[in-house]
Design a protein around this nucleic acid. Structure first.
Length: 957
RNA sequence: GCCCAGAUGGUGGAAUUGGUAGACACGAGGGACUUAAAAUCCCUUGGCCAGUGAUGGCCGUACGGGUUCGAUUCCCGUUCCGGGCACCA
C-alpha cells in the first residue's frame, strides 16, 4: 500500500535532521568555486512575516540550492537589520525597550523562517544591533573620517597625505581648531553645518531618500529645512564612480536608470560674470529696470564677479537677465542700497515658505538686486534678480536666464516684462519657450558687433545645430578663459546622524570642542542603557540621558588605555548613526562573521569576493543600494573589499499584493447583499477578512462570529451563496487581506508554499496573492509523491522506456534553462507536465525517479530529501549532482509541421526529422492535400523554416 | 514636464525572441465514484457564426497605421496603468 503524502511528518523530520547534520554549514574551500547568494536582510518588524516577505528568500534559496547541486560552494546567509527608526517606533508604540522588542521580533522571524526550509547557514547570522557587529560599522566610520577623496586618483586616501600636502603648500595652520576646520572640508565622514531635513515629529534629521514630497517616508510627517551641525558622508565624491560602476553590473535597466537619475550627472559650462553698476540696454532691453547709482561692493576687491552654471552654453546670446538663489552668499554683496529694503523683504518671504510649499507652488516670485551682470560673449549688461526658483544647492546657485529656451526663465521674463530673444530657427516663442535641444541656431550673434572679440576671435554659432553650438561655445569659453567645463551631480552628501536612541553610537568625543575619534582599541563603543529613549521635538539626543555612559564609562575606557589625561573629562557624541549605517557592509561581514580582529579577514574576502546574486526590493534603489555601493567603494579603496561593486547581479522581486474581499452592507441596515445583486441597493462596501472567505464565497457563520457588530447580520444571497467582491490592494492589516505563511505551511506544507509563491508569476513582477490557487501546487506534489511511491513499490525494476527518457530529458533541459533566468513559474509548469506524462506512461523506473528528485530539490527540498532517502541516495539531496540532459533522447524521428499556403496553415504533415528545406518543399507540394491549393496557381516563393513550418506563396497563373 | 517599464481569456500567467496565440494553474460548467462529504479521476472552457454530428468558417494579444509570405514579438503614432526624477538651469 502506497504511503500518503504526509508533509507535516516529512518537513518536521528534515528540519530536525538538517540541524543535526549541519547540512547548510558553509566553510571556505579553495578547491571549489564559490557562489555568493544574498537577500536583503529584513527589519524584524512587530507584525511578523506575511506571505509576501519570503518571496525573495524562496527565489534565492532555489538558486542557491541549484548552484550547490551544480558543485559550487554556496554562501547563502541571513541576518537582521535591527537598528533604526522602524524598530524604535515599534518599541515606542508598544511601550517597551527597543532591545526587548527587537529580540522578540527576531525570534518570531526566525521561527517563521525555519518553517519554510531555507538553506541558510545560521552560524553566520549577523545582527546590526549587536556590539561585535557594529564594532565594524564604527570602525568604517572612523576610517572615513581619516580619509579624503583624491580627485586625481579618484579614490580615497589617508588624510595624512593631505596634511602633508597642505604643509608643503604652506597652508597648514598652527591652531588645532583651524586644522580641524580645514580637514573637515575633505574628510569622507565629516561634521558639516548644512541644511538638513528636520522632522520634528520624528525628532530627527533624515537623509534625502527618507523624504518624499516634503514628508517623511516613515510616518508621513512634515519635514522642514533647518541648518544643523551634523555628521555627513561625502557620498558625492564618488558620484562618477557610482555612475560608471552601473555599466559593469548586471542589474535591471530600470533600477540603473533610477540610480542615474539620483546621481544626476549633468555636463555643463561655468561662466564668469562680471558685475557692473549701470546697465547698457541690450537689444530689445528697453524694459530694463532703471539704472541705480551705486558702487558695486565687490569692485576693487578683485571679486567683482560671480559664476553661473549652464548646460546650454549655446544660448549665451539669448541671455536677458541673471538670477541668484535667495540663499546665495552673493545676494548680500550684489544688492544696492536702493534695493536693500525690497530684497530684505523678499528674503523674509522666502524664509517663511516651507520646502513643501516651494515644491508645490510654482508662482513666479523674485526681486531685482540693483546690480547688472556683463555677458562676456555679447558684452551686454543684464539685470541680476533674486528668485526662489533658483536653488542654492545645485550648480553655483546662480544662473543665466534664457527665457526663449527655458520655460522657467520664460515665466519669469513674462512676469517681469523682460526681453525674450529667440535663438532657434523656426521656434515660436510668443506663447511658450522652446526647450527642446533640437534645431538650427540663429541670432547668435544678431550682428557681428554683438559678439565680443577675444584674442582676435569672436564667437558665431549661426547655422550650427544646438549640439554643435554647445560644443563650440564650450571650446570658446575654455580657450579664452571665460569659464570652464564643469560636471555637476545632483547626488548630495548623506546626512549621517540621527537624534535617536536605537542606533550605533558614534565613536567620537569632543576634545576641547574638536571632534576626535575614540581610539580604535576602545571599539566598540556600546550603546548605553537608558531609561528615557524617546526622541524630543527639539532635537535633544536621547543619549544625553545616559549620564553614566557619557561621562564615565567611555572616558574610563580611554583612560585605561592611558590615552588621555585622567583628570580631563570629555563630552561624547550623543547622536547615533542612521539605519543605513549597519546595512551598508553587512554582506562583507557574512564572509567572516566571528572575526574580532577585522571586519573581514583578507583570506575570506579574497575567497568570497562579492555577492554574485543579490535579491531584494526595488524600493531601496536610491537608499541602501547607493549607500552600500558607496561604502563598498570606500572599503575597496582601503583594500578591505576585493571588488569595486558589491552586488554583481541584482534581482528585484516584486511585491506580493493582497487580494481583499468585500461584503456589501445596505446603508443604514445590518443586511448584506451578495455581489451580483448589490447594484439594486444603496450599499457600502466593507473589507472582510479573507480568511473567512473561500473562492469569494463568504462563510456566513464565521462572518457573524468575526465581530459582535455582525452577529445579527442578515444576508441577501444569490444561488444560496453570499458572493464577495474583491480588489487588489497592498497587503495590510487594515484591509484584512494579510495571509500568514504559518497557516499555509500548516495546511499545505512548506514545499507547497514554496512552489506556489514561485508559480504565481515571474519573480520580478508584483502580483496578488490568492490562496485559492494553491490547490494546484498541492495536487502536483501529491501526484509527484504518488508517482514516486508507485515506482518505489515496484518489486522488479524495468529499464526506462524511450518515452520516459524523452519526458525526463525535456524536463532537465527546460528546468535548467529556466532556473538560470529565474523563470521559476515556467519550470514548475514543466514539472507538472512531466509528472502527468510519466504517470500516464506508467513509468516504473527508478533511474527516472532519481534525477526527478534532484531536479525538484531546490523547489521542494523536504519531499526531495524524503524520496532521496527512500531511493537510498547518499547524504543530502542538496549535494546530489544536477543532471545533464542528453540531446539524443530528444531527437525526433519525424516532425509534424504545418504546411501553409499564402501564409495560412492548411494542413499538417509529417516529415523526416533530417529533411532539408528543399526536400520539405518538394514533399509538401507533392502531397495529395496540396493539390487543391495548387490548382490554377503558380508558386511564387517557398519558405521552409526547419522545425517550424513550410510556407508556399501562390498567385493565380 | 523628462526618463524607464508595461498592456495577452472570468483570474494568475505561457509562447523556443518573427513561425499553428492562450502552455501550466485557478475559477466555472458537465460527468464518474460515494448513503453523503472530503479526496480522486474524466470531459468542456477566448469570442462569434454555421451544422443533428464529426467538423468547418470568421474575428481575436489596449487602439490606429506600417514592414513582412507570416507580427503578441520589429517600426511609427495614440490611449491607459505602473515606477523613477523634477523650478537641477
Amino acid at each position: 500500500m502506497a504511503k500518503e503524502y504526509n508533509f507535516r511528518e516529512i518537513e518536521q523530520k528534515w528540519h530536525r535532521l538538517w540541524t543535526e547534520r549541519q547540512t547548510y554549514k558553509v566553510v571556505e574551500d579553495e578547491s571549489r568555486k564559490k557562489f555568493y547568494v544574498l537577500n536583503m536582510f529584513p527589519y524584524p518588524s512587530g507584525a511578523g512575516l506575511h506571505v509576501g516577505h519570503p518571496l525573495g528568500y524562496i527565489a534565492s534559496d532555489i538558486y542557491a540550492r541549484y548552484k550547490r547541486q551544480q558543485g559550487f560552494n554556496v554562501l547563502n546567509p541571513m541576518g537582521y537589520d535591527a537598528y533604526g527608526l522602524p524598530a524604535e517606533q515599534y518599541a515606542i508604540k508598544t511601550g517597551q525597550h527597543p532591545e526587548k522588542t527587537t529580540f522578540a521580533n527576531i525570534d518570531r522571524y526566525r521561527e517563521q523562517l525555519d518553517k519554510i526550509g531555507f538553506s541558510f547557514d545560521w552560524d553566520r547570522e549577523v545582527r546590526t544591533c549587536s556590539p561585535d557587529y557594529y564594532h565594524w560599522t564604527q570602525w568604517a566610520f572612523q576610517k572615513m573620517f581619516d580619509s579624503y577623496f583624491d580627485e586625481e586618483l579618484q579614490k580615497a586616501q589617508p588624510i595624512e597625505k593631505l596634511i602633508e600636502k597642505f604643509k608643503q603648500e604652506g597652508r597648514w595652520p598652527a591652531d588645532e581648531q583651524a586644522q580641524s576646520d580645514l580637514l573637515m572640508n575633505y574628510r569622507l565622514a565629516f561634521l558639516g553645518e548644512t541644511m538638513v531635513n528636520w522632522c520634528p515629529k520624528l525628532g530627527t534629521v533624515l537623509a534625502n531618500d527618507e523624504v518624499v514630497e516634503g514628508v517623511s517616508v516613515r510616518g508621513g510627517f512634515p519635514v522642514e529645512q533647518k541648518k544643523m551641525r551634523q555628521w555627513c558622508l561625502r557620498v558625492s565624491a564618488y558620484s562618477q564612480r557610482l555612475l560608471d560602476g552601473l555599466d559593469t553590473i548586471d542589474w535591471s535597466e530600470s533600477i540603473k536608470e533610477t540610480q542615474r537619475n539620483w546621481i544626476g550627472r549633468s555636463e555643463g559650462t561655468e561662466v564668469e560674470i562680471k558685475i557692473s553698476a549701470s546697465p547698457v540696454p541690450s537689444k530689445g532691453g528697453e524694459n530694463l529696470p532703471a539704472a541705480s547709482p551705486f558702487t558695486p561692493p565687490l569692485e576693487g576687491t578683485g571679486e567683482a564677479s560671480f559664476t553661473i552654471f549652464t548646460t546650454r552654453a549655446d544660448t549665451m546670446f539669448g541671455v536677458t537677465f541673471f538670477v541668484l538663489a535667495p540663499e546665495s552668499e552673493l545676494v548680500d554683496k550684489v544688492t544696492t542700497p536702493e534695493q536693500r529694503a525690497a530684497v530684505d523683504e523678499y528674503l523674509k518671504y522666502v524664509k517663511s515658505r516651507t520646502e513643501r510649499e516651494r515644491m508645490i507652488d510654482h508662482t513666479v516670485t523674485g526681486v531685482f538686486s540693483g546690480a547688472y551682470g556683463i555677458n562676456p560673449i555679447t558684452g551686454d549688461k543684464c539685470p541680476i534678480y533674486i528668485a526662489e526658483y533658483v536653488l542654492a544647492g545645485y550648480g553655483t546657485g546662480a544662473i543665466m536666464a534664457v527665457p526663449a529656451h527655458d520655460s522657467r526663465d520664460y515665466a519669469f521674463a513674462k512676469h517681469f516684462g523682460l526681453p525674450i530673444i529667440p535663438l532657434v530657427e523656426g521656434a515660436d516663442v510668443s506663447e511658450e519657450s522652446y526647450d527642446a535641444k533640437e534645431g538650427i541656431v540663429m541670432n547668435s550673434p544678431v550682428s557681428p558687433d554683438k559678439s565680443v572679440e577675444y584674442d582676435g576671435e569672436s564667437l558665431c554659432l549661426n547655422g550650427l545645430t544646438i549640439k554643435e553650438a554647445i560644443a563650440e561655445t564650450k571650446r570658446f569659453v575654455e580657450a579664452h578663459k571665460l569659464g570652464r567645463i564643469k560636471v555637476n551631480y545632483r547626488l548630495r552628501d548623506a546626512i549621517f546622524s540621527r537624534q535617536r536612541y536605537w542606533g550605533e553610537p558614534f565613536p567620537v568625543y569632543y576634545k576641547h570642542g574638536i571632534p576626535t575619534m575614540i581610539p580604535e582599541e576602545c571599539l566598540p563603543i556600546e550603546l548605553p542603557q537608558v531609561e528615557k529613549f524617546l526622541p524630543t521635538e527639539t532635537g535633544e539626543p536621547p543619549l544625553g540621558n545616559a549620564q553614566v555612559w557619557a561621562w564615565d564609562e567611555v572616558n574610563r575606557k580611554i583612560v585605561d588605555k592611558a590615552l588621555i589625561d585622567e583628570k580631563t573629562v570629555f563630552p561624547i557624541e550623543l547622536y547615533t548613526m542612521p539605519g543605513f549605517a549597519g546595512s551598508s557592509a553587512y554582506y562583507l561581514r557574512y564572509m567572516d562573521p566571528h572575526n574580532d580582529k577585522a571586519l573581514v579577514s583578507p583570506e575570506a574576502a579574497a575567497y568570497w569576493q562579492n555577492v554574485d546574486l543579490y535579491v531584494g526590493g526595488s524600493e531601496h534603489a536610491t537608499g541602501h543600494l547607493i549607500y552600500s555601493r558607496f561604502w563598498n567603494k570606500f572599503l575597496f579603496d582601503l583594500g578591505v573589499s576585493k571588488k569595486e561593486e558589491p552586488f554583481q547581479k541584482l534581482v528585484n522581486q516584486g511585491m506580493i499584493q493582497g487580494r481583499s474581499n468585500f461584503v456589501y452592507r445596505i446603508k443604514e441596515t445590518n443586511t448584506f447583499v451578495s455581489l451580483g445583486l448589490k447594484d439594486q441597493y444603496d450599499v457600502t462596501p466593507i473589507h472582510v477578512d479573507v480568511n473567512i472567505v473561500k473562492n469569494d464565497v463568504l462563510d456566513l457563520e464565521a462572518f457573524k462570529a468575526w465581530s459582535p457588530e455582525y452577529a445579527t447580520a442578515d444576508f441577501i444571497l444569490e444561488d444560496g451563496k453570499y458572493v464577495c467582491g474583491w480588489a487588489i490592494e497592498k497587503m495590510s492589516k487594515s484591509m484584512y487581506n494579510v495571509v500568514n505563511p504559518d497557516i499555509i505551511v500548516e495546511n499545505y506544507g512548506a514545499d507547497t508554499l514554496r512552489l506556489y509563491e514561485m508559480f504565481l508569476g515571474p519573480v520580478e513582477q508584483s502580483k496578488p496573492w490568492d490562496t485559492n490557487g494553491i490547490d494546484g501546487c498541492f495536487r502536483f506534489l501529491k501526484k509527484f509523491w504518488a508517482l514516486a511511491q508507485s515506482i518505489l513499490n515496484q518489486s522488479s525494476q524495468e529499464a526506462p522506456t524511450a518515452d520516459n527518457l524523452k519526458t525526463l530529458h525535456k524536463l532537465i533541459k527546460k528546468v535548467t534553462a529556466d532556473i538560470e533566468v529565474f523563470s521559476y513559474n515556467t519550470s514548475i509548469s514543466a514539472f507538472m507536465v512531466a509528472v502527468n506524462e510519466l504517470s500516464q506512461q506508467k513509468c516504473t523506473s527508478r533511474s527516472i525517479l532519481e534525477p526527478l528528485v534532484i531536479l525538484i530539490a531546490p523547489f521542494a527540498p523536504h519531499i526531495a530529501e524524503e524520496l532521496w532517502e527512500a531511493l537510498g541516495g547518499k547524504g543530502s539531496v542538496c549535494d546530489a549532482r544536477w543532471p545533464q540532459y542528453e540531446e539524443k533522447y530528444l531527437v525526433e524521428t519525424s516532425v509534424k509541421l504545418g504546411v501553409q499556403f499564402n501564409g495560412k496553415v492548411r494542413f499538417d504533415m509529417l516529415f523526416p526529422a533530417d529533411a532539408t528545406p528543399e526536400q520539405m518543399i518538394a514533399l509538401a507540394t507533392s502531397a495529395p492535400e496540396a493539390q487543391k491549393y495548387l490548382e490554377g496557381m503558380q508558386i511564387v516563393k517557398t519558405i521552409a523554416i526547419p522545425k517550424r513550418i513550410v510556407n508556399i506563396v501562390l498567385k493565380p497563373c
